[in-house]
C-alpha cells in the first residue's frame, strides 16, 4: 500500500520570552493508508504540536509534509480547503472540545454547513446517519454537551470528525479523559470505524498500553525529537532506547505477579528552549557519556526499527 502521509524533517518552533522553544524538531515518518501510527511521549514532548502542525492548525517552521504523494507543506487557500476535508482531528478533552452552546446535531452539522453544497434536510439526514455510526441514540440529537457524559461527548467529537468523510484523522489523546470501561467502548468504536472506512490514524497518547493495542507502528518522542520508531510488536519485544525502556518500565501494570522493576530516571524533562545539540535525554540517561554530546541520528538497527542513540549496541549487549 502507498503512504498516505509522509513527513520529512518537520520542525515547529515557538518564540518565547527566553528563547526558541523547539516543540517539534526534525521529525520524519510516513503512514500507510489504513494503518495507525502511535505517537508516544510525556507532556511537553511535542506530540500534540506535531499533530496540529500536520493539520495546518499551526504553521510549520521547516520541513515538508506530503499527503497522497503531493507536497502540501504550504497549501494555497483552495488546497487547504480540500485538505481539511481529508484530514480531521479528535481531541482529548470531551468537555472543552465541544461548543457548549451547540446541540449534538448542530455540532455534527457544523462541518457540513461550512463545506456547503447541502440542503438543511440533507444535512439533518447526514447528521442522523453519523450519530448512528458512532452509536449515539437519536434522542440525543437536541441535547447539549453538558447533559451528556464523557463517553457520549467523545462520540460526538468522533462523529464531527467523520462528517466530511476524511481519510486521515489525528487522534489527540482521545481516551485519556475517559473511565476505563468507557475508554474500551470508544477504542473499539475507533477500530470498527477504521475497518469500515479504511481510515488512517495518527494516535497521539501518553498511555503505552492503549497505543500498543491500537497502533501498527509506534513513534517515541522526547523533547521534540523521535528517539525510537518501530512496528508496535517489535518495539515492545525489543525496546532499544534507554528512554523508551524507562517509559515502558514505568507503566503500572495491573498484574500482581508480573511486577517488573521500574528503571528509575533521574530528574525531570529538561527545557525544550534552545536545546544543546547533543542527545536531549542525556541529563536523565544512566548511560550518558561524552559521546552523547554529539548530535544523534536516527539509525535503522533492525529492519524497520529505528533508534536515535549512539550507545544502543553497547547498552543492549550488556543487558542481554
Amino acid at each position: 500500500m502507498a503512504d498516505l502521509l509522509e513527513v520529512v524533517d518537520l520542525k515547529k518552533y515557538f518564540k518565547t520570552g527566553s528563547g526558541m522553544l523547539h516543540a517539534v524538531d526534525g521529525v520524519n515518518f510516513s503512514i500507510e493508508e489504513g494503518k495507525t501510527l502511535g505517537v508516544v511521549g510525556e507532556s511537553g514532548c511535542g506530540k500534540s504540536t506535531l499533530g496540529r502542525t500536520i493539520l495546518h492548525l499551526l504553521d510549520s517552521t521547516g520541513g515538508r509534509i506530503f499527503f497522497e504523494g503531493k507536497d502540501v507543506t504550504n497549501p494555497s487557500k483552495r488546497e487547504l480547503g480540500r485538505l481539511r476535508k481529508e484530514m480531521q482531528i479528535i481531541f482529548q478533552d470531551p468537555f472543552s472540545s465541544l461548543n457548549p452552546r451547540m446541540s449534538v446535531s448542530e455540532a455534527i452539522k457544523y462541518p457540513l454547513k461550512v463545506a456547503g453544497g447541502m440542503s438543511s434536510a440533507e444535512m439533518q439526514k447526514q447528521a442522523e446517519k453519523l450519530m448512528d455510526v458512532v452509536g449515539l441514540a437519536s434522542r440525543y440529537a437536541n441535547a447539549y454537551p453538558h447533559e451528556l457524559d464523557g463517553g457520549r461527548r467523545q462520540r460526538i467529537g468522533i462523529a464531527r470528525a467523520l462528517a466530511l468523510n476524511p481519510k486521515f484523522i489525528v487522534c489527540d489523546e482521545p481516551v485519556s479523559a475517559l473511565d476505563v470501561s468507557i475508554q474500551a467502548q470508544v477504542l473499539n468504536l475507533m477500530l470498527d470505524l477504521q475497518e469500515e472506512r479504511k481510515l488512517t490514524y495518527m494516535f497521539v497518547t501518553h498511555d503505552l498500553s492503549v497505543v500498543k493495542y491500537i497502533s501498527d507502528d509506534i513513534l517515541v518522542m522526547y523533547l521534540g525529537e523521535v528517539v525510537e520508531k518501530a512496528p508496535s510488536d517489535e518495539l515492545f519485544a525489543n525496546t532499544l532506547h534507554p528512554y523508551s525502556k524507562a517509559l515502558l518500565s514505568a507503566i503500572p501494570v495491573p498484574d500482581i505477579h508480573n511486577i517488573t522493576p521500574v528503571i528509575p530516571l533521574r530528574g525531570e524533562i529538561t527545557s525544550p528552549i534552545d536545546p544543546k545539540p547533543g542527545c536531549r535525554f542525556m541529563a536523565r540517561c544512566p548511560y550518558a557519556d561524552e559521546a552523547c554530546k554529539k548530535k544523534q541520528k536516527l539509525r535503522e538497527l533492525y529492519p524497520g526499527h529505528f533508534v536515535s542513540c549512539c550507545k544502543c549496541e553497547a547498552i543492549n549487549s550488556t543487558a542481554n
Binding site: 510525556e42 514505568a250 503500572p252 521500574v262 525531570e268 524533562i269
Partner: peptide
C-alpha cells in the same frame, strides 16, 4: 503526572 514521574512519586 507523567508516567515516569508517576513511577518516581509512587516509589
Amino acid at each position: 503526572l507523567d508516567v515516569t514521574i508517576q513511577a518516581q512519586v509512587l516509589e
